[in-house]
């Protein structure tokens, strides 16, 4: 299992560097808005950061299929459950890392902007609840599709991913705005809890699909 996590990490480092630039741009925008313009922390860029980072594990699948890793990995001492689980575990790791860094940046924005206050911190927590949900969403939706069509270059897998990506992007805009206006344990918290439940359902579905799949 450890080898699969190392492989995911190496793949992300070697083929998803651009994804790591995107949060930097959004962090920049967040800081510019709050520190120089004195605006409130916006939920949309935070949701985008989590969402983009959450897309990484699903994006690595393209590289895997092109290089036939999906065949190579099945010659190694891993069960199909472990192969699927590595993707979900890496999503959790990425989401936690994004959470820590984003929380740090937001607290910094608050401290050097409006100043730290209880309501300001509550706003950050609300947005982060929503962010966690957005971070898990790409894996929830795209991973079962990927494992259903694992081994297919382009075609239906990519088409479905693009459609679902658009859907998640639209959800981000709608959700994050609503979450910011709501109370602390309101829609953001519910969205996060729902996402966590769906995440584990998606994990199980992917395992079932991949167990039946001929590579």
């Amino acid at each position: 299992m450890k080898g699969l996590i190392v492989k995911e990490t190496c793949s992300i480092y070697s083929c998803c560097k651009l994804f790591l630039v995107i949060p930097i741009v959004f962090y920049g925008a967040l800081m510019a808005g709050t520190l120089w313009k004195g605006q409130d922390i916006a939920g949309f860029p935070v949701g985008m950061i989590f969402m983009m980072m959450g897309t990484i594990p699903a994006s690595v699948v393209n590289q895997e299929v092109q290089s036939k890793w999906h065949l190579g990995v099945l010659t190694m001492p891993y069960t199909r459950t472990q192969i699927v689980s590595a993707k979900y575990i890496i999503t959790l790791i990425i989401t936690v890392l994004t959470l820590v860094v984003t929380a740090g940046v937001m607290v910094m924005c608050l401290a050097f902007g409006r100043g730290i206050s209880a309501s300001g911190l509550m706003d950050i927590v609300k947005v982060l609840f929503g962010g966690i949900g957005m971070g898990l969403m790409p894996t929830i939706v795209m991973m079962p599709t990927n494992f259903k069509f694992y081994g297919t270059v382009g075609g239906i897998r990519v088409a479905i991913s693009i459609l679902l990506g658009g859907f998640i992007g639209g959800t981000n805009m709608m959700m994050m705005e609503m979450i910011q206006k709501d109370k602390l344990f309101g829609s953001g918290f519910i969205f996060m809890c729902l996402s966590v439940v769906l995440f584990f359902i998606s994990w199980g579905v992917s395992i079932l699909l991949f167990r039946k799949k001929d590579a």
């Binding site: 070697s14 083929c15 895997e64 290089s67 036939k68 190579g72 010659t75 190694m76 891993y78």
Partner: peptide
């Protein structure tokens, strides 16, 4: 598979 070495027609190592 711990005890099996496999070489397929497509080696299956990530390109990068």
């Amino acid at each position: 598979k711990e005890d099996v070495g496999v070489v397929l027609d497509d080696v299956g190592i990530p390109d990068t």
